[in-house]
Simulated assay, not measured.
Amino acid sequence: MEKQVKSKQRVTDHGEVFTAEREVKAMCDLVADECLRIDSRFLEPACGDGNFLAEILTRKLTVVKSKYRKSSYDYERNAILALTSIYGVDLLSDNAANCRGRLFELWNKEYTSVCKKEANDEVRKAAKYILEANIVCGNALSMMCVDEHQQDTEQFITFPEWTFPFNDARIKRRDFRLDVLLKENPDDENYDGQFKLFSDDAMNIDNWMIDPQTNELVPKPIREYPLVHYRRMSENG
């Protein structure tokens, strides 16, 4: 039987109860088409040790394998793309660390199985770098990172957007504040101040910019990184 509770104390302190595998699969089935899109992004705001994210990644990697297993390069790049689409937040640092480890082991098992002798540690390092950025320890209600006592810090939760803009081996990273991403368009006439639990600073016009293609207000990245081969993305810092 699956273990859904680590300890009674954790349930009391944090309301921590893990979702059973049957329910995880059933809920993922509700968005089955999105789970099968390699680049479709998923965010789990209370990810625990990754029950939902592991199921989603498994489904994505099944698609990658079915489409690209005959080419190590194509499989490798698309397996990296699948990994970049998985995001999670958890209040407890051990859960966040366990989630990263679990997702990496799942990803690496498939990568090694398909690419065999062509699998290499440079790509594994890139995978770990992605997970370190995509799975964070924070408070998904306040949108702030937390300290070792699960208390909010002054640091906003930020997530990277990973893209392959030229559909080759070069990857682009842009970091965004989560609270800004989840805000409605501040220029929208229908905006009536929802999401009051988020920081009011998210609506600061300095956090937004005009998209040159659509001429709409969109979240402004807090940092952009130069294009780099996905195997060397960790060199960007």
Rank of each mutant, 00 (worst) to 15 (best):
E2T: 09
K3L: 09
K6L: 12
K6R: 07
S7E: 02
R10H: 06
D13G: 05
D13P: 02
E16R: 04
E16H: 05
F18V: 00
T19Q: 09
R22L: 09
R22F: 07
E23H: 11
V24F: 12
A26T: 15
M27C: 15
C28Q: 07
C28N: 09
E34S: 07
C35P: 03
C35Y: 05
C35W: 02
L36V: 01
D39E: 15
D39F: 12
S40F: 14
R41K: 13
R41C: 14
L43H: 09
E44I: 14
P45F: 07
P45W: 11
G48P: 06
N51G: 10
L53W: 02
T58H: 13
T58L: 14
R59D: 07
R59N: 11
R59Q: 15
T62N: 06
K65D: 05
K65I: 00
S66Y: 12
S66E: 15
K67P: 08
Y68K: 00
R69T: 15
R69Y: 11
R69E: 15
Y73V: 12
Y75W: 00
R77L: 14
L81H: 09
I86N: 00
I86R: 00
I86A: 03
G88W: 08
D90R: 00
A96K: 01
A96P: 02
C99V: 08
R100E: 09
R100Y: 14
G101M: 07
L103H: 06
F104W: 11
E105D: 11
W107E: 01
Y111V: 03
Y111H: 10
T112R: 14
C115F: 06
R124T: 01
A127V: 08
A127M: 11
K128C: 15
Y129D: 13
L131R: 07
A133V: 03
A133S: 13
I135C: 07
V136W: 06
V136S: 01
C137M: 12
N139D: 15
A140P: 12
A140E: 08
L141T: 04
L141R: 02
M144C: 11
M144W: 15
C145Q: 05
Q151L: 10
F156K: 03
I157C: 12
I157T: 08
T158A: 09
P160I: 05
E161S: 10
E161W: 14
W162C: 00
F164A: 05
P165G: 04
D168S: 06
D168N: 14
R170S: 11
R173P: 12
R174A: 12
R177S: 02
D179E: 10
D179P: 03
K183C: 08
N190P: 02
D192P: 01
D192C: 10
Q194D: 13
F198N: 05
F198Q: 03
S199L: 12
S199N: 12
D200N: 11
M203W: 08
M209C: 12
M209E: 13
I210H: 04
D211I: 12
P212I: 13
P219G: 10
I222F: 09
P226G: 13
P226K: 09
V228S: 12
V228R: 13
V228T: 15
Y230T: 01
Y230K: 00
R231D: 08
R232W: 11
N236S: 11
